[in-house]
């Protein structure tokens, strides 16, 4: 397994090096960054057809820590090479604009995330809880399905899903909180705009405790640049935790293409059912508080 990851690291690095050599390709990307140059096929209800299998494939690949994408150990273990950039593009320093108490809480979690003396330090993913938005997008493959008037996003990890209603219906009541939020979307040309509310306060953005409250409001923009690329940008507003809204940017690419996609499928990833030690570990922490 280590060998396989290591090989992948080399391969990925080689690909990135190749991409970074000719500046021409970078210009090519910006030309179509608004998605205007792509005339997509349409679904039966007129949506740009963006169905298929996708994964986070941009330069900001490593999502161990959204503020510092390339934590060296994680790069080694995951075989994912990056340019160390933060996923956060605004503010410019790449840091989440936490209120002081919130930064202190995040620092405490970060310092203890490999020294699990309290359940509060354990990554919700490790406990087989749902990813939340946007973490669902950088935890392996996801599939987009487009039935009429909906976008359905299926995650392989922990069989998570999002149902994005495109029919203009209002959000559900404030008191109902959901692990994957309540999504309402509409198309603006080749850009899918999604408003996500009703998030609970139990999901993290990464492994090291970057967090939000149940006041989190996310505005997502998915720009379909070409048949194989989605430029994703999300604005996070949470007045209980941050001093101002911040923005995260990711690039999704098709990870299964054309003919192969016709026979590809997500498999069942029964996280809780296969889990054999985390719950016991947490019970142990309960009975032996440090």
């Amino acid at each position: 397994m280590i060998g396989r990851y290591f090989n992948l690291t080399i391969a990925t690095a080689a690909v990135l090096a190749a991409v970074s050599l000719p500046p021409v390709s970078a210009a090519g990307q910006t030309q179509t960054a608004d998605g205007k140059n792509w005339n997509p096929p349409r679904t039966s209800d007129g949506q740009p057809d963006i169905q298929g299998f996708w994964a986070n494939q941009g330069r900001r690949l490593s999502t161990y820590n959204v503020e510092e994408a390339a934590e060296p150990t994680h790069v080694l273990l995951s075989g994912v090479q990056t340019d160390s950039a933060s996923l956060i593009v605004d503010p410019a320093d790449g840091k989440i604009p936490y209120q002081p108490w919130a930064r202190a809480k995040r620092t405490e979690t970060f310092e203890n995330h490999t020294n699990l003396t309290k359940w509060e330090y354990v990554d919700p993913h490790t406990r087989c809880f749902l990813s939340g938005v946007p973490r669902a997008f950088y935890q392996g493959t996801f599939q987009i399905v487009q039935p009429p008037h909906y976008i359905v996003i299926l995650q392989e990890f922990n069989h998570g899903s999002r149902i994005i209603a495109l029919d203009g219906r209002p959000h559900i009541g404030d008191n109902i909180k959901l692990w994957m939020g309540d999504s309402r979307g509409h198309w603006e040309g080749n850009t899918l705009v999604v408003d996500v509310t009703n998030n609970n306060d139990k999901t993290w953005f990464d492994l090291v405790g970057d967090f939000h409250s149940d006041a989190l409001h996310i505005s997502e923009r998915y720009t379909f640049v070409n048949p194989d690329t989605i430029a994703y940008e999300a604005t996070f507003d949470d007045p209980k935790v941050y001093t101002r809204p911040f923005k995260m940017a990711l690039t999704f690419g098709r990870n299964v293409r054309s003919e192969e996609a016709k026979s590809y499928e997500l498999f069942e990833e029964a996280c809780l059912e296969g889990e054999r030690n985390t719950t016991d570990m947490l019970r142990l922490l309960d009975s032996n508080p440090k």
Binding site: Q51, P147, H159, G160, S161
Partner: peptide, 27 residues
């Protein structure tokens, strides 16, 4: 639970423990 249909599949999402069934009709 909610049933969705596309040209090559019926997808069912269940509220209970977020179960998902992808029922391909083309393979």
């Amino acid at each position: 639970f909610q049933i969705f249909q596309t040209a090559n599949a019926t997808v069912i999402l269940y509220e209970y423990v977020h179960a998902v069934r992808m029922i391909y009709t083309d393979r």
